[in-house]
Write a protein that binds this DNA or RNA. Structure first.
Lengths: 344, 344
DNA sequence: CGGGCGAATGACTACGTATGCAACAATAAG
DNA sequence: CTTATTGTTGCATACGTAGTCATTCGCCCG
């Protein structure tokens, strides 16, 4: 049905080899031959068979990208950045969500294995098994914002500890003393790092974190909304809440509206990531920014390096990106309690 | 480096054919043989080479999915639905955004051609060239919410005309007589259909559309925000605006907030699609719902049918889904003008 | 007890391309 | 006019697997 390089060769009066070379822009082919081949190929609607190309050249020119759930814009911005960089290098990306693959990660290995030249894990959900199994088969693997005990992975990380510090300082400076925390799954190192530093700073300021104001869950709107409502219905509600990410903060904002609270006046809200939407007027969310785009592009560059021949036993790379505070309107001075400079 | 089926065969003391059959669960292989092969494969970390499989079986078990821009949740919900259905059938999806490929669509053909068994176009941006070229090469193509003159494509459509009617009725019933319209690119049939019906209904009600209240642009937050501000700064601003989609409505809402307008009281806003976010308390957006998930799954089913052998010259399928009104808090009765039942 | 039959497996080839190597033509140098 | 050289092209092969056909073996039935 579909014409092959042999068909093109016959029609153009050259050999199949020449067609192959002409299509790939090999300089050893005369300009006129190249033109003739191109003309015939176009006329017959020839498309090189990717499978055959990959089989022969042992490269699929494709990198697997694993994210937890595209519904969270955090992942979108990462996917976007990766694609930009991969496309520049002539590579394609094969996007996989492990939403359905919650537990074991074996299916993930089957889907990716043998069809990509490398994999970038931006997911924080799937078990550690998938990256380890892939890497042990010689597949280049890069992790974004993800810690795995096993060594040997290239990693791109945002400094979540620093994020926790910046958030704690900001809220404390505004005078908040009762601060709620809605954090992500504590199985993930990034959330543990952030929480640890957040609490450390608060304690240093002399206002240790109140355990009863802690909530944990997935980073979804639903979770933010539910826990925020839960926290604010307490007899002693917090005056500020630090959320797992921006989407969770939107959920919290939603709950606050439903409870008739004015954000910033009655309740300060902080998010994390600084996704595009956080800047929308209606949210105007104070948040901790991590440069998702830069990190994603760096991850793509790292995986391309490994694919390009950088031996697997070369020193694993580790790139850490600083976090920064983005002040907007969702946080404001605490009203109910007097300002009390607790710094030592 | 990576073990092949031959390596497994040697190690397990069987032939390569048997390994192939065992891996694919062929019933003709003894249970014990299958187990032995599976054990060896697992031990050596064998992964079948997808390229070789595809080359031999002439199927990649992959369907290309083309969307304009993942940043719009409308596309996300479609991608999600497609993936659900494809995964059920053991197919994978290869996601491509044609964001960078604005004009010609040839690059798109190169990326998809020869590597997928079928393509679903949910994009409304790229030129008509890509689907036509792919189809002319015998590739099954399904279009979602997209009209192309050329016949022979399976299509899944939402009834945009009906959406326009529902919106016009709703706003008119609320008493609005000065209604703004921020629509999508008029190069797209769906937007033309909707606008035509929208205007027809308004005219029938005796309150023809005021051309000066029409704006057009891409379906982005930015566009909604900009045009809404533009419309509301007029000496005779509209009392309601019907937006191209929900994201545009969010932009409009943003602008309204910035201008100090109260949504629903000072200005009614309607979106289109009913993406998940539209139900968030802070938006509570009245909108026209189209069942993106159902449509996406149907599109997947259609493309799988064609791949499964339904001849290309079989009657092209055409599935039209009804639109429905979802009333929420962003629309309310017009205040400034007296209710005037213009119905005949 | 032998012929035949079915179940299980093995040998072999083709899928469409990339690529090393040989062949060839054209040109330059001797 | 011969030989070396450079630049183009053709030939042949291998990539790893699926599937066709052939083979083996055990078993049932006549």
């Amino acid at each position: 049905m579909a014409p092959t390089s042999r068909d093109i060769a016959r029609e153009a009066g050259v050999s199949q080899s020449t067609v192959s070379r002409a299509m790939r822009g090999d300089a050893r082919v005369t300009v006129e031959t190249r033109h003739r081949v191109a003309e015939v190929a176009d006329r017959l609607g020839y498309m090189p068979n990717r499978s055959a190309q990959s089989l022969k050249s042992r490269r699929s020119q494709t990198v697997g990208v694993v994210v937890a759930d595209l519904r969270n814009p955090y992942f979108l911005e990462i996917v976007d950045g990766i694609q930009d960089e991969l496309n520049l290098a002539g590579y394609r990306s094969f996007l996989v969500t492990d939403r359905l693959d919650f537990g074991r990660g074996t299916e993930l290995v089957d889907v990716l294995g043998g069809s990509v030249d490398g994999v970038i894990f931006a997911s924080s959900r799937s078990a550690d098994e998938a990256p380890i199994r892939l890497a042990s088969r010689g597949m280049p693997v890069v992790l974004i914002n993800r810690e795995i005990e096993r060594q040997g992975f290239d990693r791109v990380l945002s400094d979540y500890g620093m994020g926790g510090i910046l958030a704690a300082r900001h809220l404390h400076e505004l005078g908040h003393r009762r601060i709620g925390l809605i954090t992500g799954p504590s199985s993930l190192a990034v959330f543990r790092d952030r929480e640890r530093e957040f609490r450390r700073v608060l304690a240093e300021f002399g206002t240790p974190f109140d355990e009863r104001l802690r909530r944990e869950g997935l980073y979804t709107h639903q979770v933010g909304s539910q826990w925020c409502a839960d926290l604010m219905r307490r007899p002693d509600p917090p005056t500020a809440i630090f959320c797992a990410d921006d989407v969770v903060a939107f959920g919290a904002l939603d709950a606050a509206l439903q409870l008739g609270l004015r954000v910033s006046d009655d309740l300060s809200l902080m998010g994390y990531d600084d996704i595009e939407m956080a800047a929308w007027e209606m949210f105007s969310l104070t948040t901790i920014r991590q440069p998702m785009g830069d990190m994603a592009r760096e991850a793509a560059r790292l995986v391309l390096q490994r694919i390009g021949g950088l031996a697997m036993d070369e020193e694993p790379q580790r790139r850490v990106y600083a976090a920064s505070l983005v002040r907007r309107a969702s946080t404001g001075p605490a009203k109910t309690e007097p300002l009390d400079d607790g710094s030592t």
